[in-house]
């Protein structure tokens, strides 16, 4: 999140998205129920349901009436594409700004990246 520390339901949504992106949760796999999330996070089930609704709106999850929530088959690729779009503005740009503030030359950063790539 760029603007603020987010409310609990957004944190839950982010965690589910991270699991989908990394492949821990696979396409068409069933996710835990709102009640299970509520008990685990010690929150009202209505708050957990908000996280799920947000993910349905974003196309990450889909609902099967009376059965539960499932991961959309194309969710992983969608999330990865979105991440590629925001990666430079959200990760690289702040890193470069911080390096400048700390007086780290850009070539040191590039060398580090190349080392990580080789190892």
């Amino acid at each position: 999140m760029l603007d603020d520390r987010s409310p609990i339901y957004r944190q839950i949504a982010e965690r589910i998205k991270a699991d989908v992106m990394s492949g821990v949760l696979k396409g068409d796999e069933k996710v835990m129920s709102t009640n299970q999330y509520a008990a685990y996070y010690r929150i009202n089930p209505a708050t957990a349901a908000k996280a799920f609704q947000q993910l349905v709106d974003e196309g990450v999850l889909y609902k099967k009436r009376g059965i539960g929530m499932f991961v959309s088959p194309d969710a992983q690729e969608k999330l990865r594409a979105k991440r590629r779009e925001t990666f430079f503005t959200e990760v690289v740009d702040p890193m470069v700004a911080e390096a400048k503030a700390a007086g780290i030359p850009l070539r040191d950063i590039i060398r580090r990246i190349e080392e990580l790539e080789d190892s």
């Binding site: 409310p7 609990i8 339901y9 996070y41 929150i43 009202n44 209505a46 708050t47």
Partner: peptide
């Protein structure tokens, strides 16, 4: 965390009655 809705009463009157997440979203 347990609440779905919150009722705040003050001096014998209802000051606020809202869904908790909505109420929280109003404070910044």
């Amino acid at each position: 965390g347990l609440f779905e809705e919150v009722v705040i009463i003050h001096k014998g009157r209802v000051l606020a009655h809202e869904e908790k997440d909505e109420l929280l979203a109003k404070g910044t």
